[in-house]
Structure formats: C-alpha cells, structure tokens
C-alpha cells in the first residue's frame, strides 16, 4: 500500500480483499441456491442489504419461516458493530459534504473499514473521498457478482472450501490486524498487544454464554473501555 489517496489507488488497495469477497460470496450464493432463493432475491439481498453475515442469517430465517420482526431484529444486532465502525470512520470525512458522507457510509463494510484504518496509518491520518469511494464500490460490485455467480452455478460448482477459499476472509483479518498493530503509532505496540489479548480472552469467555455476533460486539466494546483505562493508568 502506498500513501496515495486517488481513486486509482483505492481500486489497487482493495484488490487483496477481493479474494475474501469472492470466496464468501460464492459460498453465500450456493447456500441461497440450496435454500431455494431465486436469483432476484439473491441480487436483492446482496445489493440492497449488502452485509455478509446478516445475509446468511436472513436466508436461514426465511427458510424457517421466522416472523419478519425477528429477521429485522437479528439483522440489526448482527450489524450493530457497523455503528461503531461508521462513527470511527466518519471522523476522517467531516470536511466533506453531507451527501458524500452518506454515500461513503452507505457502503462501509468490516473489510473496507479495516482497510481504511491501515491506509490512514500511512497518510498521517488522512483519507480521501475518491480513495474510499473506489474501495467501497469495488467491494460492493465484487460481492454482488460473486453471490450471483454462486447462486447461478449452484450445484455445479465444487465446494469452494476444498480449495481453501473460505480461509481468505480469516487470512485477510489476520493481515489487517497485523498491519494495524505495527502501523498505529498513536496507540503503540505494547498497549495494542495488551488490548488484543484482552479482546481475545473476552471473546473466548463470552462465546460460552452468548451467540457469536453478540460476543463479538461485547468483546469489542469491553476492549475499548479496557484500552481507555489502561492508557489512563499507564500515563500516570
């Protein structure tokens, strides 16, 4: 990654994350196909909802004939971490118009958020509308097309997990955590390592009493509070 913030470099920077989108997108399409969702429904979910884990949950809840209110609530809970990510990312776009802010916000994902945080470590805390819009749009299109391809090919395609593609997303987050760890000079390495250990432990323990998505949200919030206290305590 270079410090350049043009539309073109946005497209280049987002390319490594595309592997993750293709692997998971194909998998979602195949699941949707086996759950008897039509291509139109898959397209609707991918282009209008556009949220990986929520789409899997909506698909299974539709299959189980769960009530709409339950589907809406689950979607909100699964995606509530987006409120945290958007509030964080929005700091970098305050000088842009409201329209541009809403456009960036409408397409934020775990991946493009994480990418933006690694990027701003290289640019002295700056991001640009062109760069972020490029990253967001490429991610959005690749996700939509991959899910449609998966649904269309349906049973024909061999299990993508066999070729290790399902690991692309995990590998990407490992890479992004590492880049964040060595890149964030404001927080520094020791403090971040302690916060990471706390989050991993909290997630591990919370997982035995709540769902994956709720444990993720709680561990994140607890980790931020722990980090704030630790920094206050260490600066004395």
């Amino acid at each position: 990654m270079s410090p350049s913030l043009t539309f073109r470099s946005g497209v280049q920077d987002v390319l490594p994350t595309v592997f993750g989108y293709i692997g998971v997108g194909l998998a979602f399409g195949i699941v949707a196909h086996t759950s008897h969702l039509s291509l139109l429904v898959v397209a609707g979910l991918s282009f209008l909802v556009y949220a990986g884990s929520a789409q899997f949950i909506i698909t299974s809840m539709l299959l189980l004939h769960d009530p709409l209110s339950g589907i809406f609530l689950s979607t909100f809970l699964v995606n509530s971490r987006m409120i945290l990510m958007s509030t964080s990312l929005a700091q970098y776009f305050r000088h842009e118009s409201l329209g541009k802010n809403l456009f960036i916000g409408a397409l934020v994902t775990d991946e493009t958020f994480a990418l933006a945080m690694s990027k701003q470590n290289l640019t002295h805390g700056r991001l640009s509308f062109a760069w972020q819009a490029a990253a967001n749009l490429v991610a959005y299109l690749v996700w939509g097309l991959a899910t449609l391809a998966g649904a269309w090919l349906g049973g024909l395609i061999a299990d993508p997990a066999r070729f290790g593609f399902d690991f692309a997303l995990t590998a990407m987050f490992i890479g992004l955590v590492y880049l964040q760890l060595i890149g964030d000079r404001k927080l520094g390495l020791p403090l971040q390592l302690q916060v990471m250990a706390f989050v991993a432990l909290a997630y591990y323990l919370l997982l035995s009493i709540m769902s994956q998505n709720f444990a993720l949200l709680m561990a994140t919030i607890a980790g931020c509070l722990f980090g704030m206290e630790l920094r206050k305590w260490q600066s004395h």
Partner: peptide, 29 residues
C-alpha cells in the same frame, strides 16, 4: 473520541478470533 481510537484494533482482533474459536452454548469455546 478516546473510546473510538480503540475501535480498529478491538474490532479486527474480534473478527479474527471469530474464525479461530468455535462456540458451544453452555461450555467454553
């Protein structure tokens, strides 16, 4: 603002942990 400076490292760690642990309700992961 102070809270939000920790969001990137915490959320990315939690997302990575999500695929390293398998949850079992009532038991440790």
């Amino acid at each position: 603002l102070d809270f939000l400076t920790f969001v990137p490292i915490t959320i990315m760690t939690a997302l990575a942990c999500e695929s390293l642990f398998v949850g079992h309700t009532g038991h440790l992961a």
